[in-house]
Structure formats: C-alpha cells, structure tokens
Design a protein around this nucleic acid. Structure first.
Lengths: 185, 185
DNA sequence: GTCTATACACTGATAGAC
DNA sequence: GTCTATCAGTGTATAGAC
C-alpha cells in the first residue's frame, strides 16, 4: 500500500480513538510504521494529514448511510434500517466526535468536512421524512427538517449515552424510542 | 475564595472548553492564578483535580435539570421546559463532552460521575414519560425508558450537530422535532 | 501552604545527508 | 522519498526551601 495511504488510514483510526488533540504525529508514525521524514514529505504537518483523514472518513460515512437511505422499502423502513444498522456503538461516530474538539472547530479546513457531513445527513433524512409524509406514513404536522434533526441527534447522542454507560444499551434504547415515536404518526 | 475552590472552578471551565486530554496542569495554574506547588499541595495531580471538578459539574447539572423536572405543569410541559431551557448551545454539555475522552472512560474515578449523571437523567425523564402516559398525555405503547433515552440523546446529539454547524440552529431544530413527535401522542 | 528548582518524556516540527 | 539529528516548548510531575 502507498505510504500516504497508510498515513491517512492510520490517522483516521487515531482520530476516531483519541480525537485531534489526543493524536500526535509520533503516534501516527509508530502505528503506521512510516518514518518522521517520510510523513513530513507527504503532508505538511498534523493538521494537513488530519484534513485528509477527515475528508476520507466523511466520504465513507456518507456512502454507508446512503446504502440505507436509497435501499428498498418505505420511508419508515429505510429510516429504521439506518437507525438499527450494525454499529460499533462504543467506538462512537468518527465525524461527530470531532465536533467536540476545539482545535477542529477553530480550523476551517478541519471543521468543513464535519459540518458538511451533518448538513448532508440532515438533508437526506428530511427528504425521507417528507417522502413518508407524502405517502401518508407520517403525520404531516411536524416540519421534516426538525424531525430529521431529531433523528440525527438521537444517533449522535446515543453514542454519548452509550460511552458514558460503557454499554451499547442506551444507544439501542434511544433509537428504539425514536422509532416508536416516529411510528405512531 | 479558597485556593482549592478556585482550582476546582477553573478546572471545570477548562474541562468544558478543552476536554480532559486538552487540559494541562499548567493551564489550570495559569488561569486560576494558583502556583504549581500550591496545586500539588491541594490535589495529588491532574486526575484527582479533574475528578473533583467533574463531581461538581455533575451536581450542578442535576440541580439545573431538576428545576425543570419538578416545576409546574403537565409532564409534557415539564419536558418541554427542559428541552427549551436557555442553554449556551455552542459550549455543549460539560458532562456529555467527557464521554468522548478515552482517558476519562478508562479511569473509573472519572467515568463514574459521567455515567451516573446520565443514568439519573434517563431515570427522571422516564418517570415523567410514565407520568404523562398515566395521565393520558402520551400514548401508552412506547416504553418510557426508551422514550427517555431518545429525549436525552436528542439533547446530547443536538449539541454535536450545533457545534459541527457552528450554529445553535440544529440544536433548536432537533429539540423542536422531538417535541413535535412527542406531542402527537 | 506556597515557592523555586529540577527532571524526563513527549509535541510538533525543521535541516540536511543519503 | 526516507533517514537521522536537532530543537524550543509543553506535560506532568517530584524535591526541598521558606
């Protein structure tokens, strides 16, 4: 595998595990087996490498979610498939995790993929909610953009509750609760 | 103010802003105006001080939430008051933020206040949901514990979406969406 | 209780040889 | 492209004087 590829993948892993502040160039070099000089040859520094890694993770997250969104079934069934999809709950969200990091939020290059990913996610969910309303699956009262934001938030917040409890259980409860509320319409 | 008090309050602030990994003893000393020797006289080290700060923040969070939970009104109205309460949305949750930090999750002394706070929060919300079901405000189908987890997750996830967007708007949408779904029952 | 001195590893690079 | 050397600053303390 190409050196820069190994650097990007290792950085994706470390950002996921330890966040931006908690990830050092040295740790990236050691885990990837790439030397210091080599790393600085391919990337100008930590934030450059992190930007590449975050862009990659954002792409992957969208592709994964889109599998469920454009799959078979009614709007409700596709939202359910998304929420109940197999997840490594205790590892949390590779992208959502970054939103907590002040250095990521402060650097536009790093915040952009994070912001864009959630804009996209809320937009796709809002499409599905609107589609479900048009099909008579959901009540037409609630604003699709608001329901979509609530669904996206349940996932991100579910990760937080699960990690706090050191158990996937609260995540599962949260998504089941959201689906129960959604279904009743 | 007592020295140890100033240390705890400063640590609460820094943990909120920068997380555990991102907060150094040196930064605590500088912001609090307390010297090195003095800090290590009152606390055995960074994690000891963080444990005291997290315990304090957890207490405060519970007291604040309980104001809404035990206030006037129907169960729905009290949940609404909690969700729409004035919040510094872009600062996020002092406790929820810690759940992302691997060093906090790894150290039982630090994870305990985080885990207990959310256990308590989900429990109180479940009480309210059950109360609302008994009063005929909500449909009796959904499991109160699941709905409660969803509500708590919407708040935590709302913070994530807001910080990702660098705007409080997604938080507001998420809680309004949750209330709309809740109301329809 | 508070201060200064000291320690040693790690952070995030840059420089120049190969 | 990769390697080793070097560097000023930080992280997280401990020791001992006052």
């Amino acid at each position: 595998m190409a050196t820069s590829e190994r650097l990007i993948e290792t950085t994706q892993e470390l950002l996921w595990e330890r966040g931006y502040v908690g990830t050092s160039p040295k740790a990236i070099q050691q885990r990837s087996g790439v030397g210091q000089g080599s790393m600085y040859h391919h990337f100008s520094g930590k934030s450059d490498l992190a930007a590449a890694a975050l862009g990659r993770s954002a792409e992957q997250l969208r592709a994964l979610a889109e599998e469920q969104f454009s799959g078979p079934g009614t709007a409700y069934e596709r939202i359910e498939a998304y929420l109940l999809r197999d997840r490594e709950v205790l590892r949390g969200c590779r992208i959502g995790r970054m939103a907590q990091d002040p250095d990521v939020i402060a650097e536009p290059q790093l915040r952009r993929p994070v912001g864009e990913t959630f804009d996209w996610l809320r937009g796709r969910l809002a499409d599905l909610v609107a589609e479900g309303q048009a099909a008579g699956e959901f009540a037409t009262g609630p604003d699709p953009a608001e329901v979509a934001a609530a669904i996206a938030a349940v996932v991100q917040g579910g990760y937080v509750l699960a990690r706090a409890a050191d158990s996937p259980e609260p995540f599962l409860r949260a998504v089941r609760g959201a689906l129960a509320l959604l279904r009743a319409h």
